[in-house]
């Protein structure tokens, strides 16, 4: 397998929205040129604009939200003589002890592992790509596809709390109320999704133009 040509070297641009391959885009003379895709009308870019800056900003914002999302309780269960506030982690523990351990594992992965993995992965991808590192390129590319694919499953706990709030309404006997943690958690998920969308995976391969 010899040289694999890259679009940016051949003066080609693939539209981010509709995938059309375009040539004669005047980026070489004027990198700031505003050119519309001839098929779908979206702005053409060789790379997503401001990818590093946007991804960093969104990732840091998401991390700031992630702290209260874990510390502040997400749900209150109130019954006649007992008030019980649950954080994400204590909810997982409760599900493990009282309900089903296998479902607890799923919730643990969706609510704890996936967000952590996203912070870790996107952080690593940003740092290595900005340093133009040639380290573990195929693995880094695969990691990006993984977090893009599993990212939205973190909304799981948000929907669980919402459903229980709507369902458990037995006046004084038993009630479930959402607590601010769930809002922070929902925002964390949205921000991490936006962060992984604004990262351009082509940047992973832009460092060393060695053909394998």
């Amino acid at each position: 397998m010899s040289a694999l040509p890259r679009a940016s070297e051949r003066g080609l641009v693939g539209c981010h929205v509709c995938g059309l391959a375009c040539s004669d885009v005047p980026f070489r003379r004027d990198p700031e040129a505003r050119v519309a895709c001839p098929r779908c009308g979206s702005a053409l870019h060789r790379r997503k604009p401001g990818s590093y800056g946007r991804t960093w900003a969104l990732l840091i914002a998401a991390f700031i939200m992630y702290i209260p999302a874990n510390v502040v309780p997400i749900m209150r269960t109130a019954s006649l003589n007992d008030i019980d506030d649950n954080t994400i982690l204590s909810g997982v523990v409760e599900l493990w002890v009282k309900g089903s351990p296998d479902l607890a594992v799923i919730v643990f992965i969706a609510s704890i592992v996936v967000p952590m993995l996203k912070f870790f992965t996107l952080g690593t991808l940003l740092v290595t790509s900005q340093r133009r590192s040639g380290w573990a390129l195929p693995q880094r590319a695969r990691l990006y596809r993984l977090i893009e694919f599993i990212g939205y499953w973190s909304m799981l706990d948000v929907f669980v709390v919402s459903l229980l709030t709507a369902l458990v309404r037995f006046n004084v006997l038993s009630r479930v109320e959402p607590l601010p943690g769930v809002i922070f958690f929902g925002l964390t998920v949205v921000l991490t999704m936006l962060a992984s969308m604004s990262f351009d995976p082509r940047l992973i391969w832009d460092g060393r133009d060695t053909d394998d």
């Binding site: 694999l4 940016s8 981010h16 375009c22 004669d24 001839p38 391969w205």
Partner: peptide, 19 residues
């Protein structure tokens, strides 16, 4: 202006390789 190429070319969205 940008010229649309026919559907004969495919550009990988993840690494910009042309096929």
């Amino acid at each position: 202006m940008a010229t649309p190429l026919s559907d004969a070319l495919l550009i990988c969205e993840h690494c910009d390789t042309v096929y």
